[in-house]
């Protein structure tokens, strides 16, 4: 038998989480249904808006729906994979973080793999259906590059949101009761990235493009898919820069987490 690996350790952790959820089959079904409803209710906002007007910030119903679907798919994936990291204060209070630190695996790795919200797939699946409908409705001049962009975008977006989740949760190392701050960046970023950036003021736009790269999740790639220039004058190549933004987010969130953890063990501050 081969020597067990780190990957094997994480695989075992995630498998056990999935098995634990599946053992409560009926409540799991209700949870999945609730996640489907979540996507539907969020989409209802877009639907109601376009019941009143034919364009929002210069974009049609189908175009905004495309942005919405890209954003909620990415957020659903991120939320399912790492969304529970915002429970960090709970892990600190109960001493569970200390237990993680006493094991020969990364504390963040254990925190992330300590829950795996399979129910969020309900939301992701609904978002994907909306995405397909939006793609049928909008006029995309398909090319291999655009097809690749469409495939990469939800994944890059999921990585961006996951990084935001981790970095924002690490705030709890400084402000124990302040986890809600994190929600402004995570859930706020998801809410905002479902709509065209043209409706927002310049301060918010800049913040959610350069500080929290939410613009790279849906708005910018959607522009490239639609073959439209940015009405706000951002350079066109930014629309293709999602993976770069994702890598940068990972780096920033890793540094934030490490700094926070160092503070927790008393090496920082």
């Amino acid at each position: 038998m081969a020597e067990p690996t780190v990957t094997g350790a994480y695989a075992a952790l995630v498998r056990s989480r999935v098995a634990a959820q599946a053992s409560y089959r009926s409540s799991f079904a209700i949870d999945v249904a609730a996640q489907v409803l979540l996507a539907v209710v969020e989409f209802a906002e877009v639907y109601v808006v376009f019941h009143q007007v034919h364009s929002l910030g210069g974009f049609s119903f189908a175009e905004v729906t495309l942005m919405f679907a890209l954003a909620t798919t990415a957020f659903g994936l991120a939320d399912g994979a790492v969304g529970h990291v915002d429970q960090l204060p709970h892990y600190v209070r109960t001493g569970q973080l200390d237990v993680f630190l006493l094991r020969p695996l990364s504390a963040l790795g254990q925190l992330v793999s300590s829950d795996f919200a399979l129910r969020r797939l309900g939301r992701v699946a609904t978002s994907l259906v909306i995405l397909v409908l939006a793609l049928v409705a909008v006029d995309v001049d398909w090319s291999p590059e655009r097809a690749a962009l469409l495939l990469v975008t939800p994944l890059a977006g999921a990585v961006i949101f996951s990084s935001v989740f981790v970095a924002a949760s690490a705030v709890a190392f400084w402000l124990v009761e302040g986890t809600e701050f994190a929600n402004a960046l995570t859930y706020g970023g998801s809410y905002l990235s479902s709509f065209p950036f043209t409706v927002f003021g310049s301060a918010i736009r800049r913040f959610f493009t350069f500080a929290v790269p939410a613009a790279f999740v849906a708005y910018l790639p959607a522009l490239a898919l639609l073959g439209r220039p940015d009405p706000l004058g951002m350079p066109g190549w930014l629309s293709w820069a999602g993976p770069v933004a994702a890598c940068l987010s990972v780096a920033v969130s890793a540094v934030t987490w490490r700094t926070g953890l160092r503070r927790y063990v008393g090496a920082g501050s």
Binding site: V49, Q52, V53, S55, L56, F195, P196, T198, V199, I204
Partner: peptide, 11 residues
């Protein structure tokens, strides 16, 4: 509010 003002603007 930004979204709602965007709607009002279009309307």
């Amino acid at each position: 509010l930004s979204i709602l003002l965007g709607v009002a603007d279009s309307a």
